[in-house]
């Protein structure tokens, strides 16, 4: 009896110690297990959405595929974990996922006190409001006294409170844990207003019974820079994720696409492109990858512009224009440091 207890105690103590030791370096872990565990949303059209065969598509999903391309040379080596807004940070902190790519707003609190760090901004967004046309409201400032549906555990619910308080308006909040429950409640008339990031409003509007009877109000009440998140204090992995994002932007700027990337590797004479694609220099080795990491990332999902157009751009159901998400050279604020 005593011996069993003792061995049980020792065994548990050892296994606890084992857990702490396992999360030494995410890059090494990822390489040895052969795939990336990517935390995504539970279904947001254009960002991360599964089809009936569990194939995930979207901007956030493609970003994980790009990282997989950079690490393994194969964009399919990703497994997706759907997470609610409430679960996402705990999942990353506990090591359940390697990267959180789930329309998550970069804020100072999240960046500094959660043991996490944001690796970039894959989509510059802002919070907006969706209302029924029949209400005859044309401005968010006329929403005094309205019931508002939103998702718990988001910056959205905080901005909402700030906005109504700042404008001295009353409101009633109805907060749900899952995005689908929020939109269902709005659709059934439980609330007058649905609020989330504007890209999300366009995406969720498609799920309504009569999308055309609803209108997005013009006001944008907050800054919502959405981007991938990794654990703090794991610089090797942080570098990989951060530079994959920069590589996608640099590829767009240099005109490298899925169609011409092989040709560029073989024939390009532009030194900037040669460095980016690993023909010259040892930049891939410096972040623990092969030198053709960026070329592989582009092969997996295309450059940032291709990713944007395919998932949320004007040709898709969402019909979102590049706007502030255009490259800096084209009037937007997407800007990447050079590979040098």
């Amino acid at each position: 009896m005593k011996r069993t207890l003792l061995s049980l105690a020792l065994g548990t103590a050892v296994s606890l110690a084992g857990i702490t030791a396992a999360s030494a370096g995410t890059l090494d872990d990822v390489k040895s297990k052969g795939f990336i565990q990517c935390g995504v949303s539970q279904g947001l059209i254009g960002f991360s959405n599964p089809d009936d065969k569990n194939n995930w598509t979207g901007l956030d999903v493609d970003f994980c595929r790009a990282v997989a391309g950079a690490v393994f040379g194969d964009g399919q080596k990703v497994k997706f974990t759907p997470l609610s807004a409430k679960e996402r940070f705990t999942a990353l902190q506990s090591g359940e996922i390697d990267i959180l790519s789930r329309n998550t707003t970069w804020t100072m609190g999240r960046d500094t006190s959660l043991g996490l760090v944001f690796a970039g901004v894959t989509y510059y967004d802002g919070q907006g409001f969706l209302v029924k046309k029949s209400l005859g409201v044309d401005s968010a400032l006329k929403l005094d006294g309205a019931s508002v549906c939103t998702q718990t555990g988001t910056t959205t619910e905080l901005n909402l409170a700030d906005y109504f308080r700042a404008n001295n308006m009353k409101y009633e909040v109805v907060a749900f844990e899952k995005a689908d429950e929020v939109i269902a409640a709005y659709d059934s008339g439980r609330c007058d207003v649905f609020t989330t990031d504007q890209s999300g409003l366009y995406a969720e509007r498609l799920k309504l019974k009569n999308p055309d009877e609803n209108v997005v109000l013009p006001e944008i009440i907050s800054k919502e820079p959405l981007g991938p998140v990794v654990r703090q204090g794991d610089d090797a992995w942080f570098n990989v994720v951060k530079w994959t994002y920069f590589a996608l932007l640099n590829a767009e700027e240099a005109g490298v696409t899925t169609a011409n990337v092989d040709d560029m590797v073989a024939n390009s004479t532009d030194p900037g492109i040669r460095r980016l694609l690993g023909v010259e220099g040892d930049f891939g080795k410096a972040i623990g990858l092969e030198n053709n990491w960026a070329a592989n990332a582009v092969k997996a999902v295309g450059n940032y512009g291709e990713m944007f157009d395919r998932n949320v751009g004007p040709e898709t159901n969402l019909k979102i224009s590049r706007g502030v998400n255009a490259l800096w050279s084209k009037g937007g604020i997407q800007y990447a440091p050079p590979v040098r």
Binding site: K86, T152, G153, T154, A175, F176, E177
Partner: peptide, 15 residues
């Protein structure tokens, strides 16, 4: 269903 009892309210605080 979005009623703010202990787990819902606490969950929001947690997040």
């Amino acid at each position: 269903i979005g009623f703010p009892e202990l787990v819902a309210a606490g969950g929001t605080v947690m997040n």
